[in-house]
Simulated assay, not measured.
Amino acid sequence: MPQIAQLAETYASQIFWMLLFFGLVFFVVGRGMVPKVMATVEARDSQIAADLAAAGAARTQADAEEEAWRVQSNAQRAQAQALIAAAKAKAATATEKSLAKAQDKIDAQLAEAEARIGAAKDKGLAEVAGIASDAASQIVTRLTGAAIDAKLADKAVKEALSA
């Protein structure tokens, strides 16, 4: 076979060119391109780490601001509740005073009405007693024909009404 016979002649040449090619690839890729790629990867990693650190700091600051806002909101809510409670207490006091004045006025009107009713009752009883006394005198006069003294008739009517 002629191809095998040529192998010994071309073997050294192929090894030379293979070493030259792989050496060239090693120096171009290994020494030229890989350091640039590695530098880019390291720069990207450091940028990502810096961005994560900045995001963490921003998150911490946002949490602190949120907490401050919550504290301020709670303080304002408490202050508003205190104002509402004070307004309710003031309104209750004003209502109590108004109700007390109205109650005093009603009590005065009630006492006045009771006094008028008592006076009317006494006047009515006096009139009833007078009418009853006159009626008793007239009844006795008609039945017996004798006239009765008005004082005696008044005394008899008072005894009958008190019993």
Rank of each mutant, 00 (worst) to 15 (best):
M1E: 15
P2C: 00
Q3M: 02
A5R: 08
Q6N: 12
Q6R: 03
Q6A: 05
E9C: 00
Y11G: 13
Y11F: 11
A12N: 11
S13T: 13
S13E: 15
W17D: 11
W17T: 11
M18L: 10
L19H: 07
F22N: 05
G23K: 00
G23Q: 03
G23S: 04
G23N: 02
F27C: 06
G30Y: 06
R31S: 11
V34M: 09
P35F: 02
V37D: 06
V41G: 01
V41P: 03
E42R: 11
E42C: 00
E42Y: 05
E42S: 07
A43I: 00
D45I: 00
S46G: 03
S46W: 03
Q47K: 11
I48N: 10
A49N: 11
A49K: 13
A50T: 14
L52V: 09
A53S: 15
A57I: 08
R59A: 12
T60E: 14
T60N: 11
D63M: 05
A64N: 07
E65P: 00
E66M: 09
E66T: 12
E67M: 05
A68G: 08
W69D: 07
R70F: 07
V71N: 11
Q72F: 04
Q76P: 03
A80H: 12
Q81I: 06
Q81Y: 09
A82R: 14
L83N: 13
A86W: 09
A86Y: 11
A87C: 06
K88L: 09
A89M: 08
K90N: 10
K90C: 04
K90M: 05
K90I: 00
A91Y: 08
A92H: 10
A94R: 13
K97E: 15
K97G: 14
S98M: 08
A100R: 13
A100Y: 07
A100M: 10
K101P: 01
K101E: 15
K101A: 12
A102N: 12
Q103V: 07
D104K: 02
K105F: 06
I106C: 02
D107S: 04
D107T: 04
A108V: 05
A108C: 03
Q109T: 05
L110K: 13
L110Q: 14
A111M: 07
E114W: 06
E114T: 01
R116C: 02
I117P: 02
A119K: 13
A120G: 05
K121F: 03
K121W: 08
K123I: 01
K123D: 15
L125D: 15
A126R: 14
A126V: 04
A129P: 00
A129W: 06
I131G: 02
A132C: 07
S133G: 10
S133M: 04
D134V: 01
D134T: 06
S137K: 12
S137M: 14
S137V: 02
Q138V: 04
I139N: 09
I139W: 07
T141F: 14
T141W: 08
R142H: 07
R142F: 04
L143E: 14
T144V: 02
G145A: 01
A146L: 10
A146C: 05
D149Q: 10
A150P: 15
A150V: 15
K151S: 12
L152E: 14
L152D: 15
L152P: 01
L152R: 09
K158M: 03
K158Y: 05
E159H: 05
L161I: 09
L161C: 01
